[in-house]
Simulated scan of single mutants.
Amino acid sequence: MYFKKLFTLVFIRNETSILLGLKKRGFGVNKWNGFGGKVEPNEQIIDAAVRELEEECCVIVKPTDLRNIGHLEFTFDGDNTLMEVRVYSTTTFSGVPKETEEMQPKWYPYDQIPFDTMWPDDSYWFPYMLKEKLFYGRFHYLGFDKILNYNIDELQSMEDFYASRNL
């Protein structure tokens, strides 16, 4: 039996690049990733995504500008926590990405994404995101650097996926 923790992950994109952040502290330190974090008690998931993006790189988005493109689940060998991550993407934002205590933002051209300094699972599901396909992925890790097993499914609808799982 797993104890679920809900997280958000937001990617800002344009025609040629994606904005990633280098995690400066805490879980995932020294890894490039999107922006996001824990959903607080009594907080809507979309509101958490908006809040985390602003806190981590000073960029502002409206909830209506975020598109839910994926759902990821992570488990770690010997740990009874299931990290449930809602993945969002947007091309619409205001402000200039700025470094914070948490993250150092940097734009990467799509053909130069630094997979070697990211979570190992990113190379499996990023292609779905970059092709604007909806996806569901499950990854089980040994430690933080070795994937023991995984599964990725392309989805037709995020709404149908969540309805089928009562989420």
Rank of each mutant, 00 (worst) to 15 (best):
V39H: 05
Y141L: 07
R165S: 01
E52N: 13
G21V: 09
N149S: 10
E99T: 15
W107V: 12
K38W: 05
E101Q: 08
Y124T: 10
I12E: 00
F27R: 15
F126G: 06
F115Q: 01
E99R: 04
Q104F: 11
N42V: 04
V59R: 02
L66C: 08
F27H: 14
S17R: 13
M103G: 03
Y141V: 05
L148W: 07
L167K: 13
L130V: 02
S164W: 01
F115E: 02
V59A: 05
I147M: 03
E55K: 15
Y128L: 14
E15F: 00
S123N: 09
R138N: 13
S164L: 12
F135G: 11
V50T: 09
E132H: 09
D116Y: 03
V29T: 15
S94D: 05
G95H: 00
T8Q: 00
Y124L: 13
R165D: 02
E54M: 05
C57K: 12
E101I: 09
Y2V: 12
S157E: 03
N151P: 00
T90Q: 06
E99S: 14
F93T: 08
F74L: 11
D122R: 13
F144P: 05
T100G: 00
Y110W: 10
Q112W: 02
T90F: 07
I18T: 13
Y2C: 06
G143Q: 07
I46Y: 01
P127G: 10
F126M: 14
S157A: 09
L155E: 14
Y136F: 12
L53C: 01
